[in-house]
Amino acid sequence: MGSRYDFDYYLACEGRDYQSIKAQSGCLLIGGAEGNKSGEHEATQWFLKRANGGKYLVLRVGGIGRQADWICQHYRDWIHSAAELSIDSREAANNSKVTDYILDADALFIAGGDQNDYQEYWQGTKTEETLNYVINEKKIPIAGTSAGMAILGDYYYSPDHQGIISSEILNDPFHYNTEHIHRSDFLQVPYLHQVLTDTHLDRLNQWNPETRYGRLLGLLAKVIHEDNNQLDHYGIGLEEGAFMAIDEQGIAQVFGNGTKSGQDAYFLQTNGALPEQMEPGWPLIWDNDGKAVKTYRISGTPEGSGHFDLKDWSTASGGQWEYWYTVGGKSGLRKQSF
């Protein structure tokens, strides 16, 4: 349907009767490698319970995918319907049929892909306006994986091509590929104000020669610099097997595979000091006696673990505090426990 308008809608399954329901707000952030992983089942149930038997809608670009079919196959009894909507141009994003589909939803899932496409096609359109309405006024739950998670943050990194790697940004936080950090100009998700998001922190393959932990530290430093050195900025980073559930009170818990790797969530905040060296062409030095950034790490379990209060960024349990810092470029990201 609607291909000439640059959008496609696919209804994967639907129940016979639908009564107006009241969904429960919340947010599920997904590190990027979901797919029948341990912990995903419980995180999905947490999210679908908030839909309260309503209409589940997947948003994406680039054509219809398989996420709605997967929901229908495994969680048919939890929902009234599951559908996908691919919005592939600014014209489509301003189409009333598109916004009506979004307004009608009781839960939204933003798929992975390329956050540049989301920004290019949706930002500043009726789709953006409608998304912010259903999140903040209708108060339905929203989830995002990979690129879909990235754009839920108040700040997000959206490179034109291959993203910057950790060593590049630590060696020069003004590297040309840091120009595409977008700030407070897209989706407004509760408890993610002033928060920079990043995903796939532990990914290593032929296209990703380094993990992204150092990148997250460097991006946080750059965001602070570009906001007149205001320290009240935060970072949330997820490893690929992590699912961070944030309830309507701003309390986060983490679902994951329960192993020793690949399921950690990280909450970053500054520790009262700006970087000691933040100059174009020079390595980033953010040391503060090894205590530059306070980070809380929660290892996800299938049952859901930890407790982090995003209202105050200090009340926490079930995880571990650590400091992140760098003493200059090639030294890389360093960590130490409290």
Rank of each mutant, 00 (worst) to 15 (best):
G2M: 13
F7E: 02
Y10C: 03
Y10M: 05
Y18L: 13
S20D: 12
K22S: 13
K22L: 08
I30N: 04
G31F: 06
G39C: 02
Q45Y: 00
G53Q: 06
Y56C: 13
R60K: 12
G63N: 09
G63E: 03
G65I: 01
Q67E: 06
Y75Q: 08
Y75S: 08
D77T: 11
I79G: 12
A82M: 11
E84D: 04
K97M: 14
K97H: 15
D106F: 13
W122Y: 04
T130L: 09
Y133P: 01
K139N: 13
K139P: 01
K139L: 10
I151A: 12
L152M: 11
Y155L: 14
Y157I: 00
I164G: 06
S166H: 14
R183E: 15
S184K: 15
F186D: 01
Q188S: 10
T199A: 13
T199Q: 14
R203E: 10
W207A: 14
R212D: 07
L217I: 06
G218I: 07
A221S: 15
H225I: 00
E226G: 05
Q230I: 02
L231P: 01
L238V: 03
E239K: 01
E240W: 00
F243A: 01
M244Y: 01
A245T: 04
D247L: 04
Q249A: 11
G250R: 09
Q253T: 09
G256Q: 00
G258F: 01
G262F: 00
D264K: 13
Q269S: 10
G272H: 14
L274S: 09
P275S: 10
E279V: 09
P280Y: 05
R297S: 12
R297T: 11
P302I: 04
G304H: 10
D309P: 05
W313Q: 13
W313N: 08
A316C: 06
W324L: 13
T326Y: 09
R334L: 12
S337R: 15
F338E: 15
